[in-house]
């Protein structure tokens, strides 16, 4: 397929995955506003902003022991992460970019996918922070996350399994891996060790990954930070775990086969193997998980660049000569 279209589908996958991820984070964060203590809400916002590498509006978060203040603050932060047009990582921006890529690549995706995505986008144009705040912000985020999940379902049911499909999937899984990396790193950033992070944050992490039941079955009801970390980083069966995202990305890369740029193509394969080995084989024997996550994050960034060089932005001069 056309290299530019392949790139468009790859980015569509990435943006829509990002949309879904952020909605899941905001769902549990806005639900926490109903009954959780102020410290927990505060640390929840920290966690989200850290993972996005973004400064909160009006210069940083302040912990003030007042319900009124916390709610007002949360309103501003939710708006910033959801509807803020100038925030390239807001739900609105990610969905718009994803939809824009889809609009330009409409002839590669199924009509059903396009209609579903366009309806989500149109719904998003008609609402603002005030309207979701008045009813239930967590319902809005649940619904939007569910719409993104449904989109994946529709794609699975209707999309032809050609290169376009694999590029879209590759984008999703690379993004999924990067998001898991960032979220876990954001969780650990300011803490000397995992124990210093409040238990509530680890619970929130499990909820964000739909992993509470799995965790309980495997480890019991006591929340042990290292177990949570292990589960989200290395569980092969948990959707969107770091490990699973990397495995799936490798599969898509294999399905696509070597690209026109043979050198970067082989390098991408090797790098994909290296990052998976890191999580599969090094992780269990190594305690410095923060370092390993940083390493994995670096690898993922490089992998993205290699994919781009291999399939999208390869030099044509040599090819034209042959």
């Amino acid at each position: 397929m056309l290299a530019r279209s392949a790139q468009g589908l790859y980015w569509m996958g990435r943006y829509l995955e990002r949309t879904e991820h952020l909605c899941r984070l905001l769902r549990s964060q806005t639900a926490a506003l109903v009954d959780r203590p102020i410290e927990e809400i505060h640390s929840g916002w920290n966690r989200i902003y850290n993972s996005m590498n973004r400064m909160p509006p009006v210069g940083g978060l302040e912990l003030i022991d007042s319900d009124e203040f916390t709610l007002a603050d949360s309103y501003t932060l939710t708006d910033d992460l959801t509807f803020e047009r100038s925030n390239p990582d807001s739900v609105w921006s990610c969905l718009s970019y994803g939809r824009e890529n889809a609009r330009q690549m409409r002839h590669y995706i199924s009509g059903e996918m396009w209609t579903h995505l366009n309806l989500s986008y149109l719904r998003m144009q008609e609402i603002d922070i005030l309207s979701i705040w008045r009813s239930s912000p967590e319902n809005f985020f649940s619904q939007t996350a569910a719409e993104m999940d449904t989109l994946v379902g529709i794609a699975t049911a209707t999309m032809y399994r050609d290169e376009g499909w694999h590029f879209m999937q590759l984008g999703r899984f690379i993004e999924g891996a990067q998001l898991a990396n960032s979220l876990l790193l954001g969780q650990l950033r300011h803490e000397p060790n995992t124990r210093a992070v409040p238990e509530a944050d680890w619970m929130a992490l499990l909820r964000d990954y739909n992993a509470v039941e799995t965790y309980n079955r495997r480890y019991g009801i006591e929340v042990h930070p290292d177990h949570v970390l292990d589960l989200i980083a290395t569980d092969e069966y948990l959707p969107r775990s770091l490990c699973r995202s990397l495995d799936r990305a490798a599969r898509e890369l294999n399905a696509l086969g070597p690209g026109p740029n043979e050198k970067s193509s082989a390098a991408a394969q090797r790098l994909s193997g290296r990052v998976r080995a890191l999580i599969h084989y090094d992780w269990p024997d190594n305690d410095d998980h923060k370092r390993m996550l940083r390493q994995a994050s670096d690898y993922c960034r490089q992998l993205h660049l290699l994919i781009s060089e291999t399939y999208f932005n390869y030099p044509v001069e040599a090819l034209a000569a042959s």
């Binding site: 056309l2 290299a3 530019r4 392949a6 026109p260 044509v316 034209a320």
Partner: peptide
């Protein structure tokens, strides 16, 4: 048909090629 923009096409030796994910 592929939906191409000018940047996707190149002319070499009098033939037109498009940049695909598998090469020209």
């Amino acid at each position: 048909a592929e939906l191409v923009e000018g940047q996707d096409l190149i002319v070499n030796d009098g033939f037109v090629y498009m940049r695909t994910s598998k090469g020209l």
